[in-house]
Write a protein that binds this DNA or RNA. Structure first.
Lengths: 260, 260
DNA sequence: ACGCCCTTGTGAAGGCATTCACAAAATCGA
DNA sequence: TCGATTTTGTGAATGCCTTCACAAGGGCGT
């Protein structure tokens, strides 16, 4: 199988330690996934004019516990001040740099149905270090139209566009039966990271990173928990709000889009 | 913090074992998340007329390794036949029943921007045991319009709609500044499970289950890996396709939407 | 009936991730 | 200058998930 789960950066694992001074060593996968959330929380604090924050309150804002937050941050280095907390601006920079968000990354978006258009219009892109550089669809009726300042291109030109714009990250929002084909072509054209919204498992060579967002799966997971809760409640009659034993769960999963 | 991570069903943990014969005990969270994926793979097999499948090939179709698959399935009970494999139809039923998908669940969708409309149009809903029973938006210009056979209702009527349709699961696809408010109202109206697409942490009482889908976070995670890869490649000149050491990662995350 | 072969189901081991709990900084006031 | 107070950073412990490896079980051919 392609799935590799090992540590993230074997970089400093064996011998040489040639690392950019700010860019630290091994960061656990789970931590990386949360950095993005911390970043959002920090942005919110900055907007409210807050310059310093303790692990406790940042953790609350991000919906995690403070020990985890501190351990996560400790992987980036030591950017807090004991007795005081973290400098919001500094920490923001550190996380951005760790995630590689300082160099506006070019992203291609393939598939412009409702979902694709929702993604194209997502304001969080630009503000978070990503720049949609290409919009691609298979429907010739759309090709040539302008959307958010970009001209929609036909999928036939996919390879050419990817190469000329030097795109390393692509978002697949095409129907399921077209997904693997689009994926293969993206990979052949040099794309190294793919975010897949089509409900299928994509086969990729081992140097390509795929993440998938699966709405049906999310709902089914909720359904499972809801099912359990329902079974539970049959015991006591109406008390929905007071179970709080098996009940709660704030499952922090992933990917997020602002509607409209 | 609200986040609880404990085992899923404390049900049979202590004393009594009063469980529906098909519905088995304790199922790990990680397993539940994958059941949905297996279900999709099984559906594909059934469509191709395949009646029996080995753990090895089902695992391949689902993008996991076979040991994990078998252990996952063992949590539902023993539905395979040694030397033969799993009966596709039977296993499908078992998973559906475990996830509670046999009773068409009513879902409310709040927010009908591009994303909301993409979700409303997602064919995978009905076919996977969910029925969108209410469409709600704050824009009075839309209210009264018909979308996919449902009339769009104003958010003022949220509580009434949730109660009259007996909705337990809601999908939030509203702008970030409206999300917490909508969430509070849903919870007050009795919703127990929420899928949140707004880029914010929702505060909910402990009996409510929230899952979130965060696109920006997904991209940022990809960015991180891409960044590492980039650093790596600087050593050898052009060989993009032959690293395959730190490189690959087929990160199976979650939620999925069919575009168009 | 019997034995061969295939595939499941599962103990046991190993690896990550989370949580706990506290010593090590750093500020502040006296 | 020093002690009180606050909050970070981190060893150690715990628990969950994954992976390994194989015994148990079931079909099938002879």
């Amino acid at each position: 199988m392609t799935a590799q789960r090992d540590r993230l950066n074997a970089v400093s694992d064996t011998a040489d330690q040639r690392v950019v001074p700010g860019t630290e060593r091994t960061i656990p996968e789970a931590t990386v996934a949360r950095l993005a959330i911390y970043l959002r929380a920090l942005t919110g604090l900055a907007e409210r004019g807050i310059g310093t924050v303790s692990s406790e309150s940042l953790a609350t804002a991000a919906g995690v516990n403070s020990a985890k937050l501190r351990k996560d941050l400790s992987h980036l280095g030591s950017y807090g001040v004991r007795g005081v907390g973290y400098d919001v601006a500094l920490l923001t920079d550190q996380i951005r740099s760790t995630l590689g968000l300082n160099e506006n990354r070019a992203v291609a978006l393939i598939g412009l149905g409702h979902l694709g258009q929702a993604l194209a219009g997502y304001a969080g892109f630009a503000s978070r270090g990503f720049r949609i550089s290409a919009l691609i669809d298979a429907d010739r009726a759309m090709v040539g139209d302008r959307l958010r300042g970009l001209i929609i291109q036909h999928v036939d030109a996919l390879e050419q566009v990817v190469r000329s714009e030097n795109i390393a990250i692509a978002v697949i929002a095409v129907p399921v039966n077209a997904a693997q084909d689009v994926c293969d072509r993206l990979v052949a054209a040099g794309v190294r990271s793919i975010l897949n919204f089509a409900p299928t498992v994509l086969n990729v060579p081992s140097h390509v990173d795929v993440r998938k967002v699966d709405l049906a799966a999310e709902l089914q997971i909720l359904s499972f928990h809801d099912n359990r809760k329902g079974a539970r409640q049959d015991f006591g009659p109406g008390s929905v709000a007071t179970v709080g034993e098996v009940g709660s769960r704030l499952t922090t999963t992933d990917s997020m889009v602002a509607a409209t």
